[in-house]
């Protein structure tokens, strides 16, 4: 839950409040971008933070900050992954899943998915969002999320067992 008075202060032009908010949001945005945009995550995170800061005044409900920022970060990460292409490797800093070797395997499998499939797995299975929330963030219908998630998991399973 964000500090709502900090968000309000940043919205009203308090630069030091904006600076503190950036400290809070930057790692959160980077985590989303790393999962989706892989080795283009830094570019995606920078674009996302610019969009967040530029549009902060349009956020009506400060408590919704993280959901709103997540939506922007996901959009920028998918855009970066698609437009920059050539995703060569997952950064090692992606959070581990327990066993380090298992983590490497999972990351390797995620890398084989296309950005849209990777985004849905990140939002549902790593970020723990509902299908409705993921649909809103990705700007697609609920049914699209269901089918995309089904295909992404099937593809993941197929690669995993191959």
């Amino acid at each position: 839950m964000p500090d709502t008075s900090l968000v309000r202060a940043a919205q009203s032009g308090d630069a030091l409040a904006l600076d503190r908010l950036l400290d809070e949001l930057a790692p959160f945005v980077l985590r989303i971008c790393r999962g989706i945009a892989l080795n283009h995550a830094d570019d995606a995170a920078q674009e996302a933070l610019l969009a967040i800061v530029r549009n902060l005044r349009s956020l009506r409900e400060p408590r919704a900050l993280h959901g709103w920022a997540r939506r922007i970060a996901t959009r920028e990460a998918v855009r970066a992954a698609r437009s920059l292409g050539g995703v060569a490797e997952l950064p090692l800093e992606v959070p581990a899943y327990g066993d380090p070797l298992l983590g490497v395997e999972v990351r390797d499998q995620l890398e084989r998915l296309d950005p849209a499939q990777r985004a849905i797995i990140i939002l549902r299975d790593l970020e723990g969002l509902s299908e409705e929330q993921a649909a809103e963030i990705l700007g697609v219908a609920h049914g699209t999320v269901k089918s995309r998630l089904h295909r992404a998991r099937a593809r993941f399973r197929e690669e995993w067992l191959a």
Binding site: G13, D19, L22, V29, L49, L50
Partner: peptide
């Protein structure tokens, strides 16, 4: 995420 120079440009984007 951002080096100081990039961070200053991000802050500038939020200050009219």
């Amino acid at each position: 995420v951002l080096d100081p120079i990039e961070r200053l440009h991000v802050i500038a984007a939020g200050i009219p």
